[in-house]
Design a protein around this nucleic acid. Structure first.
Lengths: 207, 207
DNA sequence: TAGATTGTTAATCGATTAACAATC
DNA sequence: TAGATTGTTAATCGATTAACAATC
């Protein structure tokens, strides 16, 4: 099965929205209701769900519980995927604290830093190791996703070490674009560029 | 002039890359060199630069200084754009500390929180105000971009207040999709979805 | 000149939206 | 039934890539 990348992203959002929505006692939801919660169109919701091969109880909308399960089958792995966060400054800490215990199938199992004061301590419930032990610990703990939140000058080196350790996915929060092996999935988020883009549209709107 | 959104993003990255690159004494750069630094193709670089209407010294590559200036003319406003960060947890602090002084034309001038211990203090060089004063302070300080890093349940309310205060761009870091007036440019970054997407591709790669 | 590089058009790819028949 | 909703095909839009003439 081959799903568009944007559909993958929305499926994650649908699931989260549905989990909240089902809390208020509803069992079914119409495509236009789900769309409204996400500020997208109903057609888009239906088209995404089409990819799942799931069909609704016609006229009654989608069964929320079933839909959540179908999305889980598609997105989640059977086993828990272990995640390591490299660089425990404010950003790394924010991510770790935010995620810990939030997703059943994604677990932050270790964080890494070079600061001796942090190494050996527990941050947001996760043990902190030295970056010099990155490869070793990542292998031992079967970490398959690495989150990079170190200063930009160390990003490439950390990516290299993560790859050596057998990590298969990297989320890069630094401002330097990375170059990784083709079997490693790379997702980059560049905060400066995002904010500059907003500034551009603000400027245009003013002028 | 109408530029593709993706081109805007890359122009921001080109500029940053060029600023670093010019530091090592080079005055010109070839499209394939710039492309290699960003892990994209040379054609894409040339096509983006085409949109700028800028032409190179043929055969010698692009004049780095000139190219930086052309990009600045396009991306930057004449005046500094003031930014406010709402919610000074780890994430808000990370963003504030990271940006302060980094971009000449984008200035974080105020941060906001509800914690009485933070209100009145200075965080990463920026004064912290109460969220209850958000509208007032944002107007006074002429803030035109708001960054939302509060807990998800308060995101919608903060977006509303920012809009009331006349903000024209919002960067939303929470996991709830926002609904804003059409004259407010909205950029959203959803960390959970990003990481779930990486996990999906890691899972696929394994299976 | 020959080779390297650019600027630009045309082709392709991917994602969204419009349109509508089918269902309850 | 009439109205609301879904599932799906076709059309459109936006972005990337291929191809290539022009330049130095």
């Amino acid at each position: 099965m081959k799903l568009p990348e944007k559909t993958i992203e929305r499926l994650s959002q649908y699931r989260r929205t549905l989990l909240n929505f089902s809390a208020n006692g509803r069992t079914h939801i119409f495509s236009h209701e789900l769309a409204a919660l996400l500020n997208i169109t109903a057609v888009q919701v239906r088209r995404d769900i089409m990819f799942l091969g799931y069909t609704s109880m016609q006229r009654k909308g989608y069964d929320i519980k079933e839909l959540i399960d179908v999305i889980a089958t598609l997105l989640d792995d059977n086993e828990v995927i272990n995640v390591g966060v490299v660089g425990i400054g404010h950003l790394g800490t924010a991510i770790t604290a935010y995620f810990k215990g939030k997703r059943a199938k994604l677990d932050i199992v270790a964080v890494f830093d070079i600061d001796p004061d942090k190494i050996g301590s527990v941050i947001a419930g996760v043990s902190c190791f030295s970056i010099s032990q990155l490869e070793e610990v990542a292998k031992d703990m079967n970490i398959s996703i690495g989150v990079i939140t170190v200063p930009p000058e160390h990003a490439a080196e950390v990516a290299e070490k993560l790859t050596q350790a057998g990590v298969k996915g990297i989320m890069n929060f630094t401002t330097v674009p990375l170059n990784v092996a083709s079997d490693v999935y790379l997702e980059e988020f560049d905060m400066v560029t995002s904010l500059e883009k907003v500034a551009y549209f603000v400027k245009k709107q003013k002028g």
